[in-house]
Design a protein around this nucleic acid. Structure first.
Lengths: 147, 147
DNA sequence: TTCTTACATTGTAATCGTTATAAACAGTGT
DNA sequence: ACACTGTTTATAACGATTACAATGTAAGAA
């Protein structure tokens, strides 16, 4: 199934005239198989073994290419580095304020909010971003024990 | 009315044992009267005249103090610098992808999403963040003319 | 009041994520 | 083979934010 995703992504890229290099292939593959939401540096370090000469700039460049192609979303989480998320179905993120863990969950799109916002402000709406913050089960039980 | 907000904010700070310095007073006052969503540097430059010796670090330090006290929210918008928003009523932001303008709009809280997310993931939910992205009227008419 | 202590501010250096740049390197079409 | 265009690499630069050490300042105890 993720093979299909990869193929679709590569096709989508090719159709927009972007060349498929081994590095791009590897980055996409890594992102699709990754269950976490990696930073640029995560990706860089994960592929270091396979591409000893690859530059961090290549990772950033290609993440930007993917983002422009709509294959990847960038999540700016607080002060630290951005995390990147391969776009699959519509889903949102819930983020643990203690350990930074990010978990996906599904929810029907918030079209109504978009419409209202567009109506009130006169903006042409493109998309939205929703994140929920809290504490994950692991950190909850950790602090419970500590007391 | 914004005088009341300022007084409330100062009281809230004092009650948590935070000292009210002239700089803190000025930063809070600026944020409450500001209709935009200023960056740390905006605040710094605005108060330069009144506090010629104030350091940028002071602005950052105090914004962090305010954030921890729940008086101020930090908006990490893309790659550039964070913007800070004095917390008033529940409102959300719509952001122009062209010029970066941020406009407030009201919408009833998304409690339902929070509940579902909490139920599905087992997180204890604290708060959420929602932003809508698009193009503002000004930029829309600008690009319309350019064609 | 004066001393002491804890918190605040200041100025500057350092950090870290990200981007710019220039050179070397493919692929593709002629 | 040649020119062209897009890609990677390596490194320098940038810019926002933070850490740190020194100085300043307010409040409470003696």
């Amino acid at each position: 199934m993720s093979e299909v995703q990869l193929k679709d992504a590569l096709d989508a890229l090719k159709s927009t005239g972007v060349r498929i290099t081994p590095q791009r292939h590897a980055i996409l593959e890594y992102m699709i198989h990754s269950t976490t939401h990696p930073t640029a540096d995560d990706i860089y370090r994960a592929l270091e073994k396979t591409f000893p000469n690859m530059s961090v700039a290549t990772v950033y460049n290609n993440l930007r290419v993917f983002r422009k192609a709509g294959l990847v979303k960038e999540l700016t989480y607080g002060d630290s580095s951005s995390r990147f998320d391969f776009v699959t179905h519509d889903h949102y993120h819930i983020i643990c304020n203690d350990c930074g863990k990010i978990v996906d969950f599904h929810y029907p799109g918030l079209d109504e909010v978009e419409h209202l916002a567009s109506h009130v402000t006169g903006f042409q709406v493109d998309y939205h971003r929703l994140e929920i913050y809290g504490t994950c089960q692991g950190c909850l039980s950790k602090t419970a024990k500590a007391q």
